[in-house]
Design a protein around this nucleic acid. Structure first.
Lengths: 349, 349
DNA sequence: CTGAAAGCGCTTACAG
DNA sequence: CTGAAAGCGCTTACAG
């Protein structure tokens, strides 16, 4: 490159402290309109190959990137969605995030992820910056109302809310039945359930599946066999302690999620109860961790990644007023590992 | 409210499909400039209490929220930072995220979180939408270069990059020494190290601390005692298998992170090696999970939340050109649980 | 002290 | 087919 070219370039940079559409146009010797149309694939634009080349050369040379704020302000489109989760500690949301990121990226959309944990004002993020809000396991009537007045389309993921007709969920009831039926098939009759928090829709559906599988098989369920936990390690551990204290100790436990199952295994192990010899444990969600705890955990694999993917798809393709009520039809599978076995001989009827 | 008021309100809404600064001004009977100045706490603004009240009333009645795009376009400030992590599976980043969210929220800034996992174009998110980029465990010379040309201030979290003079890290070397010294104090001499990936700066510093503690105590380290893993369950498991196959089997292992430690425990357990009776294990990072695996894992607690907090603070308070090289001075503590004990009698010298 | 006016960087009907 | 011009919703020097 000649000296003069370098000089020109520097001068140009001085006149254009910010590289804008106008800089590119001026560099390429065309009208900004033309550049904009080219970049937006305007079908009505007819342009010579040579001109096109010059424009792309200019973009390259100046390292031009469209200003998303200006574009968003003008078009009222942000090419971005937000995914809100309760907190980042729960690996279940991790899986959902992965799915959502895959689809968003494939659609060339930004996905902004935030938790409701430290956030004081979710609405502000919602208004203006994004084209839609995905809420996984977190939503309240006040939040959806705020999004409504802000005209931000939203969709609930993995959880329903009374009166909110926009959600995608998984078939938790069937998953629970699959787990419980497997325990029954192993020969268990005293099967307990460590459930999720009463406030969670997923917990409700898993419990329902448990009850249905039990009653279909003619097995009785005493109220003491259903111990609510809160999807955490601690909760699972104390629920297990309650079950161990039960006069009629169960020989198998269906746990509503992996975190509680890990807590339950820990508590059983502390109490000297052998798993699976004395007690079988199975949980919902086949997280990577399940393979690596001791004993490795039998689970029901749920299509969490597909849930995240489908959420973005639906949010992107339906208008804000549309009703969306979908159960993701991904694979739900029994994954047998080392935490489940036939009940001990002594306990058989 | 009277019928007429309702009518007026509806008419007003019709004339103002989008609630803007102008709507508020017109509703309150003042100039948009005045509203803007009030909202931005312009010290030069002098305004009657009565007018102020009317404006706030209008904001309330219309549910006005400033358009962040318009504001950002005008001021070139977005009141938002981005935090980039490699992926959402690793609970270490989870802790960092929590810290970053706390501080960002306290500063009334948005924190957009994304992974490099599914993202094809991190630069686009960077340009225009945010005021700065935090990169935890993920950065490349090409990415920092792109951020530089885009004039987006950035800061590396928990990892350095050759030539990049903007980072906050933890004292991994000291943490490693603390762990190894504890093992030595228990009586171990055959202490191995399952390290992190050679590419990771944290892995380098932890290994360095291990080597230093060993040599300070006059203990020899054969090359076979250092097995690189990759901070994952799988990696930790296969590293442990290598150590178990070693003719001079170690009695203790210092593992570079919790995920690898869980994999290592799993592999040892599968091989019938009792922990801690036959082998002690200790790892860096006191994640919640560490308490709930069996046996519960002894760890070194690191100030990960503080790291996230400090990262946002520094990014917000230093100009893009400033050099930032900081080691967070949070508490580093030995947390003793059930995975460590004195070496078996037979192995004592 | 208050208000009109310009401008941030785009897109897109509209006139030529 | 091409280019000038308006406007998205703000902020802020500047003139009155």
């Amino acid at each position: 490159m000649s000296k003069i070219d370098e000089d020109t370039k520097e001068e140009f940079a001085e006149r254009h402290p910010n590289v804008t559409l106008e800089s590119v146009a001026s560099y390429a010797g065309v009208d900004p309109t033309t550049v904009s149309r080219l970049l937006n694939n305007d079908p009505k634009l007819q342009i010579k190959e040579e001109t096109k080349r010059r424009i792309f050369e200019a973009i390259e040379a100046l390292n031009y990137k469209p200003n998303p704020l200006a574009r968003g302000l003008r078009t009222a489109k942000n090419e971005a969605y937000c995914l809100l989760i309760p907190d980042f500690m729960n690996p279940v949301y991790t899986q959902i995030i992965i799915g959502a990121e895959i689809t968003a990226s494939a659609m060339d959309k930004q996905l902004l992820i935030g938790s409701l944990n430290a956030r004081r004002d979710a609405g502000y993020l919602g208004k203006g910056r994004i084209d839609g809000m995905l809420m996984a396991g977190v939503a309240s009537p006040s939040l959806t109302a705020e999004l409504n007045t802000d005209k931000v389309p939203w969709l609930l993921l993995n959880r329903r809310l009374p009166g909110a007709k926009r959600y995608v969920i998984l078939d938790d009831e069937n998953a629970a039945m699959l787990a419980v039926n497997y325990l029954i098939q192993l020969g268990h009759t005293k099967i307990a359930h460590i459930s999720g928090p009463p406030s969670a829709d997923t917990a409700y559906r898993r419990k329902k599946g448990y009850l249905e599988a039990m009653s279909t098989d003619g097995l009785s369920v005493s109220q003491e066999y259903i111990v609510p936990a809160d999807y955490t390690y601690v909760g699972g551990a104390s629920a297990m302690r309650m079950l161990l204290a039960n006069a009629k100790r169960p020989t198998a436990v269906f746990v509503a999620n992996v975190a509680s199952a890990i807590g339950a295994i820990w508590a059983a192990s502390n109490a000297g109860v052998a798993i699976p010899a004395e007690m079988s444990i199975i949980a919902i969600h086949d997280l990577p961790l399940a393979s690596y705890i001791v004993p490795s955990l039998s689970t029901i694999r749920m299509p969490l990644i597909e849930l995240g993917q489908r959420g973005v798809e639906l949010l992107a393709s339906y208008p804000a007023e549309a009703k969306i009520e979908e159960i993701v039809q991904g694979p739900i599978e029994l994954v047998i590992r080392s935490s489940t076995a036939a009940p001990p001989e002594s306990s058989k009827s």
